[in-house]
């Protein structure tokens, strides 16, 4: 018994020192100059633009990945397709590739000096150092979330349910909307929430690909870096608190959705 108590104290001390302490300091630093200073920091036009940009690009990437991720999971689970293992490995690739490298990859393909980038800029759709690049980077790094959330639920779903719908005269569309989607929707939503949270917090790939132009392509995490480098840790901490609040309010939602998705196929 004494051994397990010591073990517990050791773990608590480790987590407290490594996680609780710095996060508490960050939160306190964000509010210690009073509500007025906090308000000034987060209502800075550059900060607001950065937050808004982070939120809408995250929302767009989340929407796209919810659809594409579900389709990828469906292909992986339901069909005997050539190269299934390759596809499965590709889906995990963004988990292993450093996020900064993901950004570098996009710059290497779409950068203004490259042939592809040159053509796209000529067509008026620049990718690197533009908002398109931000969304692409987010799609890259969050690719696995929806796929991995939907896969196990889809695996539990009996294909006979779809066949039953067909024998009763349902069209492909009706079957999709009324039979296939409802049971997997909580899982899709759980993956989407994860995608959104990660997108809002994403830094490395965006630092490389976004170009960091204030009011145009500067996302919130990169804005925070700028404030730190400009010697304004208080302002940086204040904006951090906004991001932290978003992330923490999403966590219970993600948990609840994952439990619902799990309960369905349990």
């Amino acid at each position: 018994m004494r051994g397990s108590l010591l073990l517990r104290l050791g773990v608590v001390a480790w987590v407290t020192a490594l996680v609780a302490l710095p996060v508490t300091v960050l939160v306190l630093r964000g509010v210690e100059d009073g509500p007025h200073a906090f308000w000034i920091a987060v209502s800075d036009p550059t900060a607001i633009d950065a937050l808004v940009l982070s939120l809408w690009t995250a929302a767009l990437a989340t929407t796209i990945n919810a659809v594409v991720g579900t389709a990828v999971a469906w292909v992986l689970v339901r069909w005997d397709v050539p190269g299934r293992r390759v596809i499965a490995a590709l889906v995990d690739l963004p988990l292993a590739i450093p996020t900064l490298v993901a950004g570098v990859l996009l710059v290497a393909l779409f950068g203004p000096q490259t042939a592809v980038g040159h053509v796209l800029i000529g067509l008026g759709i620049p990718v690197a150092f533009a908002r398109t690049g931000i969304v692409m980077a987010l799609l890259f790094v969050t690719l696995p979330f929806v796929v991995r959330a939907v896969e196990p639920v889809l695996e539990e779903l009996d294909p006979a349910e779809e066949e039953a719908a067909y024998t009763m005269g349902a069209t492909r569309f009706t079957t999709l909307v009324r039979v296939l989607l409802p049971p997997i929707l909580p899982a899709v939503a759980a993956g989407a929430v994860q995608t959104f949270a990660r997108s809002v917090a994403e830094f490395g790939s965006l630092a490389a690909v976004s170009g960091n132009i204030p009011h145009r392509t500067l996302v919130a995490p990169v804005y925070i870096l700028g404030e730190v480098e400009a010697g304004n840790p208080g302002g940086a901490a204040s904006v951090s608190l906004v991001l932290l609040a978003i992330a923490l309010s999403l966590q219970p939602l993600a948990g609840a959705l994952a439990r619902r998705a799990g309960a369905r196929h349990a």
């Binding site: 009996d158 006979a160 349910e161 066949e163 039953a164 009324r178 039979v179 369905r264």
Partner: peptide
């Protein structure tokens, strides 16, 4: 269907 295949 053998295992019912009810829409759960």
């Amino acid at each position: 269907f053998q295992h019912y295949a009810l829409f759960r």
